[in-house]
Simulated scan of single mutants.
Amino acid sequence: MAGDQKAKGKKEQMKGKAKETAGRAVGNERMTAEGRTEKAKGDARQAKEKGKDTLKP
Rank of each mutant, 00 (worst) to 15 (best):
K17Y: 08
K17R: 12
K10T: 15
E12C: 09
M1Y: 07
G42V: 06
T32H: 09
A18H: 03
A47E: 15
A2M: 11
L55W: 07
A44N: 11
E20M: 13
E34H: 02
A7W: 00
Q5L: 15
R24V: 02
K39G: 01
K52H: 01
K48E: 14
K17F: 09
G16C: 02
K50C: 00
D43S: 12
K10I: 15
E12K: 15
A33C: 01
A7D: 13
A33Y: 00
T21F: 10
R45L: 11
K48P: 01
K39H: 12
G9W: 03
K41E: 12
G3K: 02
M14I: 14
A22Q: 14
A40S: 11
T37A: 12
D43W: 03
A40L: 08
V26I: 14
R36V: 05
K48I: 01
A18N: 11
K6F: 11
D43P: 06
K17G: 00
G16W: 03
Q5W: 13
D43Q: 15
K52P: 04
M1I: 05
V26H: 03
G51S: 02
L55P: 07
R24L: 11
E20N: 02
Q13L: 13
A7Q: 15
R24N: 13
N28L: 06
Q5E: 14
M14R: 14
N28S: 10
D43V: 06
K52R: 09
R30W: 06
G35I: 08
K48V: 02
A18I: 09
G51A: 10
K15Y: 07
K15L: 06
T21L: 08
G51D: 04
Q46Y: 09
Q46L: 15
Q46N: 13
K6W: 01
N28Y: 03
M1G: 12
K56E: 05
K48T: 11
G35K: 02
A33N: 08
R45T: 12
R36P: 08
M14D: 14
A22V: 03
G35Y: 03
Q5A: 15
K6S: 08
A2H: 00
E49T: 10
R24F: 11
G23C: 09
A22Y: 05
G9V: 01
T54D: 06
G42W: 09
E29F: 05
G3H: 04
E12N: 14
T37P: 02
T37F: 04
E12L: 15
K11A: 11
G16K: 08
A44D: 10
K11S: 05
R36W: 04
A7S: 14
M14C: 02
G23W: 09
A2P: 09
A2F: 00
A44I: 04
M31T: 11
A44S: 12
K15G: 00
K39F: 08
A2S: 10
L55F: 10
A40P: 05
K48N: 08
R36E: 13
T37Y: 07
K19V: 06
T54C: 05
K19Y: 00
A40F: 06
P57I: 00
V26Y: 10
A25H: 06
K10A: 15
A47V: 03
G9S: 01
A33S: 12
R36L: 01
T54F: 04
N28A: 09
T54S: 07
T54N: 04
K50D: 07
G27K: 09
T54E: 08
A40D: 03
E29P: 08
D53R: 02
T32A: 13
K15V: 00
R36H: 10
A25E: 13
G42Y: 06
A47W: 08
